[in-house]
Structures are given as structure tokens and as C-alpha cells.
Design a protein around this nucleic acid. Structure first.
Lengths: 231, 231
DNA sequence: ACTTTGTAAAATGTTAACAATTTTTATTGA
DNA sequence: TCAATAAAAATTGTTAACATTTTACAAAGT
């Protein structure tokens, strides 16, 4: 794998330009304890997921591998990996020899089922991780919450989707690394019509309630807040 | 994509040899109505999944891409795709730069949660597809059941895992193509200790009960039979 | 005008070579 | 003998070229 350094992320209209270099011009500060290296595939997957969930792609036109490869400055290999992963996650739909498109939101009945399953999962996860959460976790959650707040203030749907998922994912991860994959594919499908969200302040309020309850180590309140947020 | 023709599948001890040729020596009968082409990735994914679920791989040694590529007679590309997909499914565990290993079965608490979610899903699916099932579906289910029976008779764990999953997958698919991916990753994780199954006759009996209830279009009985089978 | 057919372009599927990383093995030193 | 270090092998990550399939478009025929 290639350890890459993102020098800058430029946001301009519909294109996201990420400058990637193999070595930094000057040495960055040494890794704190363990270096976190994310594969190209993982980075591209996350970038594309948040874009799709933010509604920046329609399902009219297929997403072209070549164009994406050029945009991210990599070859088609990692792009294909990312598209394949997002297809399994339910964000994209894959057709053999035809490429991928954005998936459509689940029908009402499916949505209710997935919602119920997500509630079941997150209720389980918060109940499992609550007891061994530390102040460091509180800080992390506050950080994600701050990011979510900033993203809502500037109405950046892509960043909002990122932060929203990140907060929930953090709690799932603390409970069970094993369940993260299942959770992701359920949550992604439920957020497929995220772009229709309009009340941004409500998103902040709901997540503030979650973090508040978690910091107080109040399990019942946390579960209630989470269930209120999963709609 | 490459349409491949499997000339023979040779099973000998721990190695599976599949002879693949691009063109058949003499023309086969033309496709019935629509040709069903499964990508290399899909075929390899299915083959490896049933092997892992049957306990033919330990999680001691990592699965090597090169060895698998040679065994299947393809390059490492499709192998990597399959391994990536199975990692997302929870069958394998992926470590950057180190390859994949067989995942360990979920802990008791996780298993109970996944079980509950699988029951919820399949109960939903059978309730949704029951009304529009036809006699053609009954035949398909009978066919899968027959395959399961034969597999149990010769105690072929790999084939048993295949047929078991195929039967449930059939009903999920009939209800919702959208939910299939989520279902697969839950079911795979639950079957991670499939090799410990010893009462093969019980497997057959449980699935016979499911098919019997479905053929009678008895929803309650079908849901009961399915729930009894998910343990 | 409409359908059909053939050709070219564009897209995905696959492969093999190369790059980077990890693991193993051998060597050197105390 | 053991530990530390360096070279070598093995393995995964990435790329670019090639193969196959699909799609778009134009020409010909009815």
C-alpha cells in the first residue's frame, strides 16, 4: 500500500480535487503512537460515499471509472475497488459490463425494516460500549459534533453526511469492530435520500442530545436520543 | 467480461481444479431466453465463500492471492475483487499489506444480535414475497432442497453451505433485491462456524418444513419454520 | 419514415509488469 | 548463544496495456 499525504482539498462546484503526493516536501510531525494509513481504496470510497449521500450524483448517468481515475489522480484499479465496495454497501448499483449508478432510496417497507434493524444495532452498541467509554471518547465525540455543527452552518451536505455517519460509526466501532460492516451497509441505504434533508438545525440538536447523554453515561437517555435520530 | 465455460470440476482432497476455456470445442445449445453470465469475481467469490463456511480454511494462515490465482487459472485481479468482497461480507478479515484471513465466528452477544436481525429480515421477506410466489418458484425451491438433501447424504459441507444459503437467498431475493446484500453479510457471519454442524438430517428436515409451508402458502407456518431454522 | 445492419468509439474486464511493503533468512557483532 | 542488523525473498498495492463488451451512429434497405 501507498502512504499518501493529502496536501490540499479544493472544493469547486461539482469537482473535488485532491492533491496527492508520495512524500511531503518537508517532514511532517512524526506519528503519535501508531501510524494510521488508509488505503487509496478506502479514501476514495469515503469521498464518493459522502458525495453520493449528499446528492451530488444523479442515478441518470453512470459513474465512469476513467473520469474518476483522472479526477483522483490514480489508475482505474483503486477506483474499481471503491465502486465495488460502494455497490455492496448499497450506495451504488452495479451492472456487469455497464458500470455503476447511484442506487435509488429503498421503498417504504424496506426503509422501515432497515430502520428497525439500525435501531436494534445501535441500541445494542451503545449499551455495550457505554461502560468502558473514557474521557478521550468524549473528546472525540465532541470533535465530531463540532465538525457536524460547522458543516451544518455552511450547509455542506457532503460534510454533514460524513460527520453524521462518523458519530454513529464511532459508537458502533467502540462496541464491536465486527458489526461495523453490517451497520455501514444499513446506514448507507437509509441515508440514500439524505439530500432531501432541510432542517439542518434539527440534525445538530439531535446529535447534541446523543453526545450529552453519552457524556453523562446515561444509557437510557442515549438510547432514546439515538432512536429519535434514526428516522 | 469473459463468458467462460466450465468443462470439469475436479475435487481432490484440498484442491479444487476448474478447467476454464474461452470457447467450447463444439457449440453448446443456444441460451434459452436470456443468457446468464456471472463474472469471474462472482464465481470465485461464491466458490471461496462456500469453502470457508465449510471450514476448509483455517484462520491461521493468510489466503495468498497468487496461489488462488493459479488455482483458478486467472490473474490476481479478480481474486483480489473476490477477497475484498468476502471481507466486506465478514467471511474474511483484511489487513492492509498483509492479505486476508478467515474471520472468527462472532462473539455470543453479537451472534444473538445478528440472529435477531436475520429473523427480522427473513420474516419480513417471506411475508412480502409469499403472495406473488408461483409454481415455478415451488419447483426452484424443490430443486434447491433436493440439492441440499444430496449434499447432506454425502456429507459435503461445502455443498451444504451453498444449498442452505441458496434456499434462504431465494426467498430474500423474491421479496427484495435491495435487501439481498445486507442479508448476505448477516447470514455469512452467522454461518462462520458452520463446520461444527453435525446433525445433517436435522438440516434437511428444517428446510423441508420451510418448503412445505411455502408450497402451502401458509405464511405463519413458513415464518415459524424459518425462525426454527435460524439458530 | 422506419427498421436493420455494420462500423467506430467508448466503456468495462482482465492481465502482466512494476513499485512498495512485509516477512523471512543470513550475517555480524557483542 | 543471543540480539541486532542487513540482505533477500515473498507478498500486496498500483499501474498501464490489451481484450471484450456495450453503446452510438451512420448507411443501406424495405
Amino acid at each position: 500500500m501507498l502512504t499518501i499525504f493529502i496536501d490540499a482539498v479544493l472544493w469547486g462546484g461539482n469537482t473535488l480535487s485532491v492533491l496527492i503526493s508520495k512524500k511531503p516536501d518537508r517532514p511532517l510531525r512524526p506519528p503519535v503512537s501508531k501510524k494510521i494509513v488508509r488505503s487509496l481504496r478506502e479514501q476514495i470510497t469515503d469521498a464518493l460515499r459522502s458525495e453520493v449521500l449528499a446528492g451530488e450524483w444523479t442515478n441518470e448517468a453512470p459513474m465512469r471509472e476513467h473520469a474518476l481515475a483522472e479526477r483522483f489522480g490514480v489508475s482505474r484499479g483503486p477506483i474499481r475497488d471503491a465502486l465495488l465496495q460502494l455497490s455492496q454497501e448499497g450506495v451504488l448499483v452495479y451492472s456487469p459490463n455497464k458500470g455503476v449508478r447511484v442506487n435509488t432510496p429503498p421503498a417504504e417497507a424496506e426503509r422501515l425494516l432497515l430502520q428497525s434493524m439500525r435501531r436494534e444495532m445501535e441500541t445494542f452498541c451503545i449499551g455495550r460500549c457505554m461502560k468502558h467509554l473514557t474521557e478521550a471518547d468524549d473528546e472525540q465525540l465532541e470533535g465530531i459534533l463540532a465538525e457536524l455543527t460547522r458543516a451544518c452552518e455552511r450547509a455542506d451536505l457532503s460534510a454533514i453526511a460524513d460527520a453524521d455517519l462518523a458519530l454513529h460509526r464511532y459508537l458502533v466501532r467502540r462496541a464491536s469492530r465486527e458489526l461495523e460492516g453490517v451497520w455501514q451497509s444499513i446506514a448507507s441505504r437509509l441515508l440514500m435520500d439524505y439530500s432531501r434533508i432541510d432542517r439542518l438545525d434539527q440534525i445538530v440538536a439531535e446529535h447534541e442530545a446523543i453526545v450529552r447523554a453519552v457524556k453523562k453515561r446515561n444509557l437510557k437517555a442515549a438510547q432514546k436520543a439515538i432512536n429519535a435520530n434514526i428516522i
